[in-house]
Design a protein around this nucleic acid. Structure first.
Lengths: 406, 406
DNA sequence: ATTAATATGTTGCATAAACCTACAAACACT
DNA sequence: AGTGTTTGTAGGTTTATGCAACATATTAAT
């Protein structure tokens, strides 16, 4: 691109920008009247009406069927407004996660509601990229009737890989892929022409966990996904921060300690493998599960508690280090290992207090309890977000020769 | 604020946005004709002409006096354009650094050229905030004739402190200040009503070192200022990233190592105090200076080299940790200790290679050689940047009752 | 029950600013 | 001198917003 944030706005772009703002507001607040919308957008009521008329004609917005009184007992004077809402099934988006052990797909509607999901076991390392993409695409499309296909407005793919913002994978160590253009492969495998985005799975998870939630719209949120691997993503004011190479938030590779011997990174200290490796040494069970471990910690079994204590300390160090750099005010833990955190909240807090200088603020830490679909859902949200922006396909009519400006 | 990035664009705002874009382009590229500007801004030539007419009437832009042929020997066909340029002395901005040992002030013009500077010794810890602000303001204004004052369009203040984006200092350990509203104090001490911004000194330094430079306009740059203390700032796509509490990039407080005993942070490993403390133990001189140390390193004096080697290793660890979180593609070292880096480039690179996994990209590391005025200059740049944005005072006419919408 | 007050949605008109087309001007090249 | 090319400007068109007015729907008060 030539000059970021330096391009001017023309006539049509005003309307586009305002339509986008209206859609965003309706998505964020659920239901608004024309007058409320006008206030939120600092527009004239009349302009608001025009914009809504336009969006209604496009089938994206409708007047909500009369609800029972919104908040009984609380009524303002004056003519009540006609509530407007997005038409959920006007369009839909698909999200696909190509994981190491499974492929999941999610279909979301314009209201970011999950419409349907599919999960399929999968042996990533043994399968080529092309085959994986084929299976992912057919799984995503299998429950979509052909008549509905044209209402698809985008598909997002997430996978554990380092990739740039165009979807070119530099390296996917867990899958054995290198230098493949995932987004292009998906585009080619699709029977339709829709926008395709690819993103690192942890980043996608982070988007999915914050997207649409009004709580997370400002501030800095650090998202940590702890499974066998430990990934991370950073959300700044509601937008994903990718860094220069899409590696921002890769907190699993922080170096912890400089004791002699092999250097250890955070992933090797708080990942599922490590916990279970230690736990197996002490458990009486033949094939102990992570659930067994959690139960033992809850029962204050000393051997388990000791493992958890090590985990809490390493986690605390990692979080403090990260906050010194990005100054997050909110940390969200995800992945199956996150279930350990509620049992260790006080210990983690104690470690953080012990480590960091007292003048630094203490970020809030919460656990994300969404299932394993988070990453696929986030990938779908990326396209929802794109649709509700000026890059939306809706506005692509004559800007075809735009990319040759270097 | 109500809804960030959700407010709509009206008619006037388009023009404002385009005027701002034109000013930015002229600042970035120096000289442009109306036609070139139209291409850069993706505007019609005629619109470009209107906008320039507007800006010329405001006295901000003028047609450049005919230069000798730009690039002799290279001429395109067609009528040559009339070059336009910013009128440098149309307005000016002031930057003030309230340091621990000195106060510096800088005056810059619309072209971000330094017009004048002042430096004064100062004993920060012994002086109250109010007195410090008074001295800083009078120093900044002392060389400005009264007739010129009304052309001042903003003052920036930088100081070593944790502060929020409104200029409220939470804590300034080196100066002994706590919970004072620096920006408000400066506003009150001024005999004029202009925008006032306050910022952490390392952040201001980072802005000053990247502002206007077209190289740094995209990507992620980590800026490190190494003096007695070690501060840092992060620039993302040309804009300062403050984090949730203005502490982003405070890399000096990273924890290095987890050896038993007192925990050490990066500042304690690579700061000037530590280097000189170690150096004093081995130097034959009575009062060795940092310059002596550099000379000894250059001469390969084993004791000095050993200190430098420790420094290089700690620096490498700190940089790698930071890059795992923010994925910077460019690192700039500043402050007096940065002079050590050119002597240790290879060692630092070797340590980085040893520490980080090979799949991660290697950021470029450069040294910023600007003098000690960087922080004051950066503070002034913040107001230049603000003037060249939609928050500019130029557009504040009737939006007085805007802040009560909460 | 009637009236006043208030907020909403809609309509017609004014306005602003961008776009398009055309044209004169200024240069390079033949 | 003539042609081709690019620039700056002027006049007219388009589009979307703002403004003011009005009918409408509801609550509160008399």
């Amino acid at each position: 691109m030539n000059d970021p944030a330096l391009t001017a706005s023309s006539h049509r772009r005003i309307r586009q920008s305002n339509e986008v703002a209206a859609l965003k507001a309706l998505h964020q607040f659920g239901r608004l009247s024309r007058a409320e919308l006008a206030r939120k957008l600092r527009l004239n009521r009349s302009s608001s009406g025009h914009i809504i008329a336009s969006l209604t004609a496009d089938g994206l917005v409708r007047e909500a069927i009369e609800d029972p009184p919104e908040l009984p007992g609380y009524a303002r004077a004056g003519r009540p407004g006609i509530m407007l809402e997005l038409v959920p099934d006007a369009i839909f988006f698909l999200g696909v996660e190509i994981g190491v052990e499974h492929i999941s797909t999610v279909e979301i509607d314009l209201g970011t509601n999950i419409v349907s999901t599919n999960v399929e076991p999968f042996d990533g390392p043994s399968i080529s990229v092309e085959a994986a993409v084929d299976r992912a695409v057919s799984l995503a499309l299998q429950s979509i009737p052909a008549s509905k296909l044209e209402r698809c407005e985008g598909i997002g793919v997430s996978t554990p890989a380092q990739m740039d913002k165009h979807g070119l994978i530099r390296l996917a160590p867990l899958l054995g892929w290198r230098n493949v253009h995932l987004a292009d492969l998906v585009r080619d495998a699709l029977p339709l022409r829709v926008p395709v985005l690819a993103e690192n799975d942890a980043n996608a998870f982070a988007i999915g966990a914050t997207y649409g939630r009004s709580e997370a719209h400002s501030g800095v949120t650090l998202f940590l996904v702890m499974e066998s691997g430990v990934g991370g993503g950073i959300i700044i004011d509601g937008n994903l921060f990718r860094g220069a190479n899409g590696l921002a938030g890769e907190i699993g590779h922080l170096i912890i300690g400089d004791a002699p011997g092999p250097r250890r990174n955070l992933e090797q200290l708080i990942g599922l493998e490590t916990i279970m490796g230690e736990y197996r040494k002490t458990s009486a069970l033949d094939h102990p599960t992570f659930g067994n471990f959690l139960a033992d910690v809850q029962d204050r079994l000393p051997s388990a508690v000791s493992i958890a204590e090590q985990w809490a300390k390493a986690l605390a160090i990692g979080l403090v280090q990260a906050c010194r750099i990005i100054d997050a005010d909110r940390i969200v833990l995800g992945g199956s290992v996150a279930a350990l955190y509620p049992l260790m909240t006080a210990r983690v807090a104690a470690h953080i207090h012990a480590i960091q200088e007292s003048s630094f603020p203490f970020p809030s830490i919460t656990v994300n309890d969404e299932g394993t679909l988070g990453s696929a859902f986030g990938a779908a949200c990326m396209l929802h977000q794109r649709y509700l922006s000026l890059e939306s396909q809706r506005f692509a009519d004559d800007t075809a020769e735009l990319e040759e400006l270097e």
